[in-house]
């Protein structure tokens, strides 16, 4: 299969600074690999198999070598497309890029907690089926078998191609590449695509801190704190 692995298409939550008044400052944060991006690559490679191919696709200003240091030989970048609060707008930009890449059987993209609509909207713009929350997948007779955990159950589903998979990582990346791989990756070619920056259908009106500000703390000695905690939990009817 020919797979597109979408990576580095949003900024990392950790790079945002929240001011005292709740205002968010992203500083010069660039697009970064998300928690689920390593799983995106693993799944895309598995689906491509020995006869297929995986190309990377990234948007914005992130360093493109990330995927190239993880075994891909080709990547496409759409640097004009920045972060958007509108998942549908991001999806339209990605769909334009996928169209330009050409023959594609499967697009794998993070089913990111912070951007829960992008993968589904991307599939809708492309007109393809979609499955979200996917932990692993394999090609089977021209179709794709995908597994996902939903609640406390594990489902296996079978889908036709072309399709979009929203991937979810189970844990940290097993083996991040070393220095040498990064250096080699920076020499690999990256093709720039011309994709118009998408227009968002929502405008940000500001941020504030949540009303509930953190835990009620019990202090004093360990014994005092423990007694207060037990009393509080009893009072709530929880013990």
């Amino acid at each position: 299969m020919r797979a597109v692995a979408v990576y580095k298409w949003s900024r990392a939550t950790a790079s945002a600074l929240v001011r005292q008044d709740g205002e968010v400052d992203w500083g010069s944060a660039k697009m970064a690999a998300g928690d689920d991006d390593p799983a995106v690559l693993t799944i895309a490679k598995e689906l491509a198999g020995a006869d297929g191919s995986v190309v990377g696709l990234t948007i914005g200003d992130g360093e493109t070598a990330w995927a190239l240091a993880r075994g891909l030989d080709t990547a496409y970048a759409a640097p004009q497309v920045g972060p958007s609060p509108d998942n549908a707008a991001t999806a339209r930009a990605l769909a334009q890029a996928v169209d330009q890449i050409g023959e594609v059987d499967v697009v794998v993209i993070a089913d990111a907690v912070a951007h829960p609509g992008v993968a589904a909207a991307l599939a809708a713009v492309l007109g393809w089926p979609v499955l979200l929350g996917v932990n692993s997948a394999e090609a089977a007779g021209g179709r794709v078998n995908a597994r996902r955990r939903v609640g406390n159950a594990v489902e296996t589903l079978s889908l036709p191609t072309p399709l979009v998979l929203g991937a979810v990582a189970v844990g940290e990346e097993a083996k991040p590449p070393g220095m040498m791989e990064m250096i080699k990756a920076r020499k690999k070619p990256v093709t720039e695509l011309a994709v118009a920056p998408p227009e968002a259908g929502v405008a940000a009106r500001g941020t504030r801190r949540p009303d509930r500000q953190g835990a009620r703390l019990f202090d004093g000695s360990a014994d005092e704190a423990a007694a207060s905690l037990v009393a509080a939990l009893r009072g709530d009817g929880l013990l």
Binding site: P85, D86, N87, A88, A89, A91, V113, A114, H115, P116, G117, V118, A119, A120, A121, L122, A123, A124, V125, V130, L131, L132, A200, G201, V202
Partner: peptide, 17 residues
């Protein structure tokens, strides 16, 4: 979410989480 994404695109709606 898979269905909502499709609805949003068909309706020309913005989509947020």
């Amino acid at each position: 979410r898979a269905l909502l994404g499709g609805a949003a695109v068909a309706a020309g709606a913005a989509l947020v989480g």
